[in-house]
Computed example of a mutant assay.
Amino acid sequence: MASVDPKAVLEGRIPGRPPIGLILGLIISSLCALLVLGLTAVFGGPGFELGLLLAILPVPLLVSLILWLDRLEPEPPRDLALAFLWGAGVAVLGALVLNTLGMIYVTVPIFGETKGHFVSAALGAPVIEESLKGAVLFGLLWFRRDEIDGFVDGIVYAALVAIGFAMMENLTYYMRAYEEGGAAQLQGVFILRGIFSPLGHPLFTSMTGLGVAYAATHRGGGRIIAPVAGLLAAMTLHGLWNASTVLGLSGLAIVYLLGFCILVALAVVVLVERRRTVQLINRYLPAYYDTGLVTSQDVWMLARIPARRAARQWARSVGGRPATRAMADYQLAATELVLLHRRAERGTIDPAKYEQRHEALISLMALARQAFLRTPVRPAVPPWAGHEPSGFHPPRI
């Protein structure tokens, strides 16, 4: 597969050209995260090491859960890393500065000490934090729109941003609890934030992710309204959560019930979209039977996650890691191909860009298939190539 750069094809970029903007984003986000950790360690008081350990503890489980949702069409690892580091770095540092300035110069002078802190927590913090977390999602929509193929992608990116943010925020809460009440109070705060509400921030920011995903995959005026509506919904949920702390157990019960309902709704969205992607695989790929790119058995395999995993295991048994990598590239390229057809059908991709990406994906599929089967395939040209009517209307299969 020396003639094709699989990673570049799957990430939708020009081979040989590194994603400079993405790399700069990773560097800046990492530096901001290190700066926050350094400031917290120096000025945050005792309990830094213990608080950091407790803050990190649920992260691997949460990240694994999010990536598990993304198995059918995994996002590029660097994009996922940027989302997490942006939340843990840029968003946290910005929120630390803006929330502090807001309390010092706005809410406390206007409302007084006690009420000012409540207004800041219930109104100021949600607006600032969700805007900063959502900024990277809007950036992905602007610069990496083609990587957002549906609502699941929006949820995945939003959740990773929020997990990174929550990790750093929890560190400060744990340190404050340890300083004020020792191990006993720290234990209570960890149970509340680390065990009973680790999905709080991901649920809030997922609203922004849904809005951004809609804008990336649809045409019309909703492309502008949806991201804004999603961001406002995230702010509202975040504000309700923060305000519930002064309402006692009844307030907490209400927001927990609301969070559970949202979690169920998001699970339904994931299931429905996964079923729709399977339908697209069964709809579009059979047209490539005559090219040698896919067989009916391949379509059956690609539409089932356990079968995909079994295929990679088979490839590893017959060809080692290179064959495994080729099989994974083949599976992802095939999925990207059907999603590309879906974009074309909706009119959300430029015809010239469609042709370029279509050619790259089928070339990658052909070479990957050769690599794990070690047999040549016929020219990877779909039967309708060269017969699209003017106006770019891909065939409905």
Rank of each mutant, 00 (worst) to 15 (best):
T375I: 06
E147D: 11
Q297T: 12
E147R: 13
G181N: 09
A226R: 09
V42E: 07
A233S: 13
A303Q: 12
F111P: 09
P227T: 05
Y330T: 02
T245V: 08
P383H: 11
A368M: 11
A88Y: 13
V269L: 13
A183K: 15
K7V: 15
A41Y: 15
V152K: 07
L93Q: 13
R396D: 15
L35H: 01
L22W: 08
L186A: 11
V4Q: 10
E169W: 01
V152A: 03
L361Y: 12
A344G: 15
H238W: 05
G16K: 02
P15H: 10
E336Q: 15
S30H: 04
D70P: 13
G102W: 08
F260K: 02
F190C: 14
L22N: 00
F260P: 03
A213M: 06
R223Y: 03
L367S: 14
A303K: 10
P46K: 08
H387N: 12
L96R: 07
G320S: 10
R346F: 11
T217V: 13
K133P: 04
Q187R: 08
A162L: 11
P74V: 04
T172E: 11
F138M: 05
T40H: 09
E169S: 04
I225N: 05
A2I: 09
A303P: 07
F151I: 03
A33D: 03
G87T: 07
Q370M: 11
M327D: 04
G211I: 02
A323C: 15
L339H: 12
A95D: 00
P379M: 06
P109C: 06
T348Y: 02
G222C: 07
Y173W: 13
F260T: 05
A135N: 00
E169P: 04
I397Q: 14
G112L: 01
M207I: 02
V9H: 03
V294D: 06
D329E: 15
T277W: 11
V264R: 05
G347K: 02
I23D: 03
I56D: 04
G116L: 01
A166D: 12
G259T: 10
G116A: 02
R321S: 07
L257P: 01
A303Y: 07
Y289Q: 10
S363I: 00
A385M: 14
L98N: 05
L85Q: 00
A303F: 07
G222N: 10
L137I: 00
A215L: 06
M175K: 03
G164Y: 11
I362G: 03
P198W: 05
A121I: 02
M167I: 00
G87I: 06
I104V: 13
D146T: 06
F260G: 14
A385Y: 15
R357G: 01
M167R: 03
A333M: 13
L247I: 01
L137S: 02
